[in-house]
Write a protein that binds this DNA or RNA. Structure first.
Lengths: 217, 217
DNA sequence: ACCTGAACACCGTTCAAGT
DNA sequence: ACCTGAACACCGTTCAAGT
């Protein structure tokens, strides 16, 4: 008898953000529209503006949720283990939200989670003897490796397992005289001299070793 | 007597790309629309599609022009000098086209200029004794530093010269109990113990030294 | 307080029609 | 061969009006 109620306060900022992350994870951030998001929430696009200032503010909120997922360093444990754990966690989180890395490197986030990450990462380093200047350097070196590696990983059109097959397939298309080293590199991959695979943790450890030596001096 | 001709073959792919770069440099890539670009060229938006497949293809062409501006390594000169020169050139180029870095890290470019950069950079390294595996690592380490540094530089809301004033201004807004290291770091900047400035070439040299030591073993 | 209809000022792109 | 008018299927956002 009761007609279906239409305004049943179904919307909340948390539900909006969670749903938009879900949609972005599935279809990419470019495919996320205020209208599409609203549709998913059984509401009109305009309703969203009662909870969020605009699309950009929504994206900031989405990033906050992603950054919270990163395992934070324990301030008073050995910095190398903690930096390693944080970087590995960042990779896992950013691979599970493939839209996030591109946005994280495109803006300076001043949200609570992002500031907390900086605070606690810096904290772990200075507690372990880094100066603030050194901690800034270390944090950036690690972040650059993580972001750079993951962006490549996300954008690369071929899976590591298929490198060899892909090299064999595309070798004839590489102009040997124009790009001799590209050609030679592809040959190495085909012949198995080099697998072409970059290992995330190997590069990470190179950086951590470099930092260790650097602050030691 | 002659009525003004309307189809005077004013358009060319080069003119389209050059104008779109000019507009993106000035107003940002987000403000670049096919319609706006066409207007700048005194033509309707649809005319552009006679010269370029779509907006994405146009952006690829824009990137090519940017990448060409980067000073390429000389294959048979000392790798450290060449990598240094290339990185410094990349920074200059990417700062003069502030929209470009964000896009470069968001896709794998297979354009001629991008492939040439990989080829010649790899070439310089292997000619100087790197294996292909080591060259891949080195190239990525350098690129990650350059991109990471520049993206921070482009996005950071405060000029290095204003760090101290900004720190003084925002210190009261930092919750000392919530973010103690952030607070302490800001204090160091205010007191002049640390200027907060990251030096591009210093970080670059740390990486180059690390690479030197790494391939030496 | 929260949701909505209608509207504004845009987008990228297609396609048939013009010269 | 190249340019265009009209149209399609979208956008984000504002604002007054509803409950």
């Amino acid at each position: 008898m009761a007609t279906p109620k239409r305004q049943q306060r179904t919307l909340s900022i948390d539900r909006i953000v969670a749903t938009s992350i879900e949609l972005a994870d599935r279809h990419g951030l470019d495919a996320l529209s205020m209208r599409g998001l609203a549709g998913r929430l059984d509401v009109t696009a305009m309703s969203l503006y009662n909870h969020v200032a605009n699309k950009d503010a929504l994206i900031d909120l989405m990033l906050e949720v992603v950054v919270v997922e990163i395992v934070a360093p324990d301030i008073d444990k050995p910095w190398r283990d903690m930096m390693r754990r944080r970087a590995i966690s960042m990779r896992k989180v950013l691979l599970s939200h493939p839209w996030a890395a591109r946005i994280l490197v495109s803006r300076i986030s001043l949200g609570d989670a992002a500031v907390r990450d900086i605070d606690v990462t810096t904290g772990c380093l200075v507690t372990n003897g880094f100066t603030y200047a050194q901690a800034d350097w270390a944090r950036n070196a690690i972040n650059n490796h993580v972001y750079g590696f993951i962006l490549q990983e996300l954008n690369f059109p071929v899976e590591p397992n298929d490198y060899r097959a892909a090299a064999a397939q595309y070798l004839p298309a590489i102009d040997q005289h124009k790009f001799p080293f590209m050609y030679a590199g592809a040959l190495e991959i085909i012949e198995g001299t080099y697998d072409g695979i970059l290992n995330f943790e190997f590069g990470l450890d190179l950086i951590l070793e470099g930092l260790e030596r650097w602050i030691g001096t």
